[in-house]
Write a protein that binds this DNA or RNA. Structure first.
Lengths: 155, 155
DNA sequence: CCCATTTAGTTGCGCTCGCAACTATTGTGA
DNA sequence: TCACAATAGTTGCGAGCGCAACTAAATGGG
């Protein structure tokens, strides 16, 4: 990283303002969105992500490893998260008949109904907390900025 | 997703692009910054925040409750986080002589040295992952956008 | 065809942190 | 003054998740 400890390139005013506004906001924003989802639909945003991804997958099922990659979870983390969804009946596990190592996470009708009920409320929350605070121009700038950051991360 | 609910105000293309770019980026970004800090200075970003805040406080000490509010931690969460910092010698606890209920978290010389060593490397990481990916104009737009979002959260 | 390697997933363990209950101290109203 | 409320902090417990070790199944080089 930095090889010269003597002269650090500290952030200037503009850089600091961007950085501070970002880190001081994302925690509260995520907390608010999570609280909204918990209150309106009794689920965590993690569970919501699982249901969304499964609902968009062919036959409403995916391999565990694909799901883990999509959700940025380790295999063990995904196993535990699915345990909860299986117990409440939103998801079932099926062994793939093409590859007996893989478990398919399958969205149940009950899980789909839960997602359908939760989605409009979640969208309203995202609007209230995020979208409604931004102009169209700001949304376009923001999308460009974060896309740029994300591309930098994957080098 | 649900096409049967006509009352829901789903996100349009611009809104969706802003939202997706945001949520798909912040997880990876935080993970990268945390990994950098762990590798360069053997500390978590949570511990780093504590040291920064203490170093900027009068006499390098603060009341636990003020620290908890600043870091968005519950009292119990802060107690546990300080436990680690106390054990490694970066922070000590002192009972306030004005109010004997309050514990003061005090930054030790060793903790201060650790922060001074870590800060340039952390700034370099923030530059590499965040600042360097943005133009000056993007930084200004981003600061305005997140300030607006944060103000919305605190109503 | 076989055995080493790779891949998928689960489990034990540890870490972080929130909630509820608890102690200790300070503030307040009759 | 005294009882009760408010405030500061710690602890037991449990949820969520990463790491390392493990089993089981597929794959590939000889």
């Amino acid at each position: 990283m930095s090889r010269t400890d003597e002269k650090t390139n500290w952030l200037n005013k503009t850089e600091m303002a961007a950085w501070i506004s970002f880190i001081e906001t994302i925690g509260d924003l995520q907390y608010s969105l999570d609280s909204d989802l918990r209150e309106s639909s009794d689920m965590t945003s993690g569970d919501y992500q699982v249901l969304v991804y499964l609902s968009e997958s062919p036959d409403r099922r995916t391999r565990m490893c694909d799901l883990a990659a999509q959700l940025n979870l380790t295999p063990s983390g995904l196993t535990r998260r699915l345990d909860g969804l299986v117990k409440e009946g939103s998801v079932t596990r099926e062994v793939s008949n093409e590859d007996r190592r893989v478990q398919l996470a399958v969205l149940t009708p009950q899980g789909y109904r839960k997602l359908v009920a939760a989605a409009p409320l979640h969208v309203a929350s995202v609007r209230h907390r995020f979208i409604d605070r931004l102009t169209t121009e700001q949304m376009k700038h923001l999308a460009a900025a974060f896309t740029s950051i994300r591309e930098g991360l994957s080098e």
